[in-house]
Design a protein around this nucleic acid. Structure first.
Length: 555
RNA sequence: GCGCCCGUAGCUCAGCUGGAUAGAGCGGCUGACUUCUAAUCAGCGGGUCGCAGGUUCGAAUCCUGCCGGGCGCGCCA
């Protein structure tokens, strides 16, 4: 158990004891002891930890909160909590708790012992989680929107794993259906133009330049024979070729971005396994479908959706949502305890229908969490640009990474919650990449590495007791908070908390650095500060690792 | 019209699931390098938390209604 957690548990137990004693003496009414939240007050004048339990307990009684607080404070004694300095009632009934100097020192040893595992917890209890994200159509290069989802999803997976879950990352590939066909047709048109025919990219197809380049490459590699094939066959062949190429390129960019996927699931495999047929048969057998106007509908209206949804079109084809449902059914069958989907907010209208279908198929939909990333509005020098593969107009992830850099890009996206509607000006982002806070954090890490190099000796363990300077304790406090931060980032699905934490920790280190000389001082103090530096280096490297950002040894 | 999301400093955004005096970065202004990396530090200025009600000891946070914006509401994905 980490330091802060141990202190909280100790205090909580003492308060519970005090509550029981006071109840027996008749000072407080008999009532269950509420969940007692102990947090770090915003102002250090309010102590090292504070709680509002007394305010909770006083609710619904005739007693004043301060009176309740006083009864509880009586139980906070140095006998029960050796490190306690004092506890007092404050404001409307808060209990503020002050510890003796040096109470944070043990954190240093904890961190040095744990190394880069520091902050890991068993919160997730080994539960298996599948996180699906990006899942971009394999019909064009990835763009900045995918970049945001990639940064978020990848970091979330890392946080979950650090917090005791067993999380895996999955990419779903829509390599079948209507868009797949249109990709094939678009490539065909490019190939024909190459041969001098006046072919046009079909309506709703993909007019982007990347298919022009791909057509030349195709011709070089395989010639034009494909154009003599039967229409359906050549469309499929070309689409397959294009998807393979594009997916390969997507994987390379994601790799470069530090985003790792454990699984790629293909829609074509799901179709080959007759997943869509099975879904439709099962839903129909259970009475959730209806034939109407030559199509087959899922009866979602009135069940939480504002309309019925088509499953099978009049032309006999399945709508995209059927393989989607089959895919999710398959994910449940694969034995995960929790499924997390990360989609763009433009897909949110589809979520309810898929959830309903899965529920009707008997799957535990409360184990399916759908997180929606908000839209990015793309600006270029203040003017709006439409981002769409189909319009062929977008900023590719590759270009973005070329111009802004991997670390700055990841940090940039991870400072925002996924709920913000971002106005994203590429020119501005490029200009500001020099000012990106990521360098502030990395610089702190590099500075520490420099000190440790010069110290020449490895600090394995040290007596951290001499750390009493305000800048030292402020830094210690930040280091001790990492386990809480990781747990919170994982459980609230909010890895962006860690960018704020990283920045704050770096800030405290820079402050410490400016005020406290590490090398060449009094030996005991110097050793303690060296240990503190070492612990800080571990914490920064750990957080940056969870964010997918590099931790340079020098800058 | 209906659904989801957003509205916090000049700009870009946090605000730990209801706590004490609302924060950061950038931009603006002052200072600090013969000492472990100045990509740093110290300081100044900047706010009717969109508006109006409600819930309670206590609201940027929860509820309702408005106003403004984004995205959905395809037999496209």
């Amino acid at each position: 158990m980490y330091l802060l957690e141990a202190r909280r548990a100790q205090i909580r137990e003492a308060l519970r004891q005090a509550h029981r004693d006071a109840s027996e003496r008749g000072e407080l009414p008999q009532a269950p002891f509420p969940p007692c939240v102990l947090e770090e007050p915003r102002s250090e004048q309010h102590g090292d930890l504070a709680t509002n339990v007394a305010l909770q307990l006083a609710r619904g009684t005739r007693l004043g909160p301060r009176q309740v607080a006083a009864a509880l404070v009586a139980g906070l004694t140095p006998q029960r909590i050796p490190v306690l300095e004092r506890a007092e009632v404050a404001g409307p009934g808060f209990i503020n708790i002050y510890f003796r100097d040096g109470w944070l020192a043990p954190a240093v040893g904890e961190i040095l012992a744990a190394g880069l595992d520091y902050g890991a917890s068993a919160m997730g209890q080994g539960r298996r989680v599948l996180v699906e994200f990006v899942s971009a159509n394999p019909t064009g290069p990835l763009n900045v929107v995918n970049c945001r989802a990639a940064a978020f999803g990848d970091s979330l997976v890392r946080c979950l794993n650090a917090a005791g879950y067993r999380a895996e990352a999955e990419f779903y590939v829509n390599d079948a259906g209507g868009q797949f066909r249109k990709l094939g047709l678009s490539l065909e048109a490019r190939l024909r133009r190459l041969r001098g025919e006046a072919a046009e990219v079909p309506e709703g197809g993909y007019p982007g330049d990347y298919l022009v380049a791909m057509a030349s490459r195709y011709a070089d590699e395989r010639g034009m024979d494909v154009l003599e094939q039967e229409p359906e066959r050549r469309i499929t062949m070309l689409a397959r070729y294009a998807v393979d190429r594009i997916l390969q390129r997507q994987r390379e960019v994601l790799e470069r971005f530090g985003v790792h996927f454990d699984h790629f699931s293909l829609e074509s495999d799901i179709r080959a396994a007759r997943g869509p047929e099975r879904v439709v048969e099962e839903l129909s057998a259970r009475g959730y479908t209806e034939e109407r106007d030559g199509a087959l509908w899922l009866k979602t209206e009135g069940a939480g959706d504002n309309d019925d949804r088509v499953l099978r079109k009049r032309d006999g084809e399945y709508t995209y949502r059927v393989p989607d449902i089959a895919y999710h059914a398959g994910k449940f069958e694969r034995g995960y305890d929790l499924l997390i989907d990360i989609y763009g907010h433009d897909h949110h209208g589809e979520v309810q229908a898929v959830r309903l279908a899965l529920e009707w198929l008997g799957y535990p939909v409360d184990h399916l969490e759908v997180l929606l990333t908000q839209m990015i509005r793309l600006l270029r020098d203040g003017r709006e640009e439409k981002i769409s593969k189909r319009s062929g107009n977008f900023i590719s992830m590759e270009d973005f990474l070329d111009e802004v850099g991997v670390d700055a890009a990841r940090f940039f996206f991870l400072t925002r919650t996924i709920d913000t509607h971002m106005d994203f000006d590429v020119e501005l982002a490029k200009r500001q990449s020099q000012d990106n806070p990521v360098y502030y954090v990395q610089y702190a890490h590099a500075r520490i590495c420099s000190i440790l190099r010069q110290a020449g000796e490895l600090v394995a363990e040290a007596d951290a007791a001499p750390l009493v300077h305000p800048a030292e304790t402020a830094l210690l406090r930040a280091l001790a908070a990492l386990p809480d931060e990781i747990a919170a980032a994982a459980s609230s699905r909010a890895p962006h908390r860690l960018t704020a934490y990283a920045r704050q920790t770096a800030e405290r280190f820079h402050g410490f650095y400016a005020q406290c000389r590490v090398l060449g001082g009094e030996p005991a103090q110097s050793r303690a500060r060296l240990a503190l530096c070492s612990a800080t280096q571990i914490v920064l490297a750990r957080v940056l690792g969870l964010l997918g950002v590099s931790a340079p040894q020098s800058m």
